[in-house]
Nucleic acid binder design. Sequence first.
DNA 1: ATTGTATATGCGGATAGGCGAATAAGGCAA
DNA 2: TTGCCTTATTCGCCTATCCGCATATACAAT
Lengths: 137, 137
Amino acid sequence: MRDLEGYFKGLSDVTRLRIMNLLLQGELCVCDIQRIVEGSQPTVSRHLNYLKHSGLVLDRRDGLRVFYRLAKENNADLRALHHFLRRVFKGKGVLENDVKELKDAMARGACAVPTPFRAGKPVPSDATASRAPLQAS
Amino acid sequence: MRDLEGYFKGLSDVTRLRIMNLLLQGELCVCDIQRIVEGSQPTVSRHLNYLKHSGLVLDRRDGLRVFYRLAKENNADLRALHHFLRRVFKGKGVLENDVKELKDAMARGACAVPTPFRAGKPVPSDATASRAPLQAS
DNA sequence: ATTGTATATGCGGATAGGCGAATAAGGCAA
DNA sequence: TTGCCTTATTCGCCTATCCGCATATACAAT
């Protein structure tokens, strides 16, 4: 009940909706999210913090990076919510474009980790160029 | 997208969630809603107005009373939302108790109109005692 | 320790939301 | 008209969000 209210507050912002849409694709690091939603770094960080305190996402640190993922573990409401979000996010131009940009970034070597997150380093194949995570090789 | 943000803002309050839960049962007049959520009359009115401007509910006046109902007409997102709400509202003590109180009130002759709202007077069988809509006969 | 990168937090101002108290407005009935 | 009932709106106050800017923290590498 209070949980629900919190979830909805968390979703009451376009930027956070875009972030949730991205996280439905899998775990992502802050820098990749920021690059796609094009907000200032503090703004994105605060939105992520808001989502975290709403109980919608979880985070973990790996070295310099912090990775965010949906908090779906053993919670029926959250699973229903994800199902609903996947449904209503369909056909929303901005959101679908964000996913497209994300896929492009991943293909070019973003620092994100594929869906069922693996424990290792988040850096892709050619790990030497670690300065700008999204630079093409 | 903006619509979605508005829907979620509309749902970001416990009182409004309770109202939405009641309206899932069918069209209701303000006085019945107020009696159940136990807020002040201005507070309930403002929440209803907020829901209306979020695009979540519609209203119509019938004499002294104003009736509110869910705005589901030809909108796929709203239909998905209602489905989701029905799902997550299940098992929430406060909400289920509200519905119980609503059904009791209807049985005692509330001013509400059954689900697919009929056009006639909202007053139940014994229309003479119209002072306090929820008084038992 | 120092430097550099990634992320978080503090502060200030602007805007929005929430509630109580009082008042206004819409509508029926005598 | 007057009076009454139901609902909406205004006002004032307080709290919560949102953002930009600056600064702090966490970590890695040298």
